[in-house]
């Protein structure tokens, strides 16, 4: 925001307001919690969180380490980007992997090819216990799904890491309550009030770098139930599958086995913003509806696994 804009308007633009609220939330975590961590995947929402943390705490170091739960089934581009970003910021990155939990026996797969997305929560809880974290900062948003619409910004989890919707604290004004007993913890969601469009507009404004798979690229995919299933070593084409080379991009990134791209030619943040805005305003055709449905359920799986 320029000084000029400040002189013209007595109030903040919507992005400035959202940014300021998120900084306020991050600083409340730092002020109230003894040992927090920030969940960082290398995905777009957590990259936005890192920029907000810079705004909240520079010139100091972050008052928390970055924590990533690696399923071992992530796109290399995203993992490389995760390491690069942590290094650029000179912040501590802790990686704990689902594969270690499998070796310990705390995660048991039903089949070798099973999605490890939902098993992340076991590894996350183990990491919380190992380091004694009393708060984990995450990038979940209320607009992601209907059931999330009433999630608190400071969400209470019991000593088993469980979210009990009947046992959530009332949240009034900006007076957050992060108090916990030993073993319990708080999940704090600084970008609760952001929408997908806000996130992309902020990425554009702040000129944030993202892993390449967020932008349109050619990829071999198979159409399955309206979803585009990428053809990878983990998810090879089966006999009878029709493999197509399509221009696609990912709207969210996560475990390879359950993250589907959407068809798109948007190769820049500006064009993604255009697509995101248009998605909400155009007349909807049947084909797009299926895309949207699968998109929503994919987000849902991600949430169940991670938060």
């Amino acid at each position: 925001m320029s000084t000029l804009a400040l002189q013209q308007h007595a109030t903040l633009s919507h992005l400035d307001w959202l940014e300021s609220e998120s900084i306020h939330i991050l600083r409340e975590v730092a002020g109230q919690c003894a040992n927090p961590a920030l969940l960082f995947s290398g995905g777009k929402d957590s990259l936005v969180l890192l920029r907000l943390a810079e705004k909240a705490f520079r010139p100091g170091r972050f008052p928390f380490p970055l924590l990533n739960i690696d399923t071992g089934h992530n796109y290399t581009e995203v993992i490389d980007f995760r390491d690069l970003r942590a290094c650029q910021l000179n912040e501590r990155l802790i990686v704990r992997s689902v594969e270690d939990s499998m070796q310990r026996g705390s995660v048991v797969l039903k089949s070798a090819g099973e999605s490890r997305n939902k098993h992340q929560s076991v590894t996350l809880l183990e990491a919380i216990e190992e380091f004694g974290f009393d708060c984990c900062i995450g990038g979940a948003r209320r607009d992601e799904e209907k059931a999330r619409a009433k999630e608190r910004i400071f969400s209470f989890r019991d000593e088993f890491g469980q979210w009990d919707p009947k046992n959530q604290r009332p949240e009034l004004w900006d007076l957050f309550n992060a108090k916990v007993h030993k073993g319990e913890n708080i999940r704090a969601f600084p970008i609760s009030n952001w929408t997908e469009l806000d996130v992309w507009q902020y990425i554009e404004r702040e000129d944030l770098q993202l892993p390449s798979i967020y932008f349109a690229h050619k990829r071999s995919v198979v159409r399955k139930n309206g979803l585009l299933q990428p053809v990878t070593e983990l998810t090879p084409a089966r006999p009878g599958d029709v493999v197509e080379e399509l221009s696609v991009r990912f709207r969210t990134v996560g475990d390879i086995t359950c993250t589907a791209p959407v068809e798109s030619t948007a190769d820049s943040v500006a064009r993604i913003i255009e697509e995101t805005a248009t998605t909400t305003i155009t007349e909807r055709g049947e084909t797009r509806l299926d895309d949207q449905t699968s998109e929503a359920s994919m987000e849902q799986r991600k949430k169940e696994g991670y938060f």
């Binding site: 607009d143 209907k146 059931a147 009433k150 919707p165 009947k166 009332p170 929408t195 806000d198």
Partner: peptide, 27 residues
């Protein structure tokens, strides 16, 4: 969806929803 959850006994459930007109964002 929220009414159904209320019936299950959730006593506090303020839901937050979002829309934008392009000129202004609403919560």
């Amino acid at each position: 969806g929220l009414s159904a959850e209320r019936e299950q006994g959730i006593t506090i459930d303020v839901a937050y929803r979002y829309f934008t007109t392009g000129r202004r964002k609403y919560i």
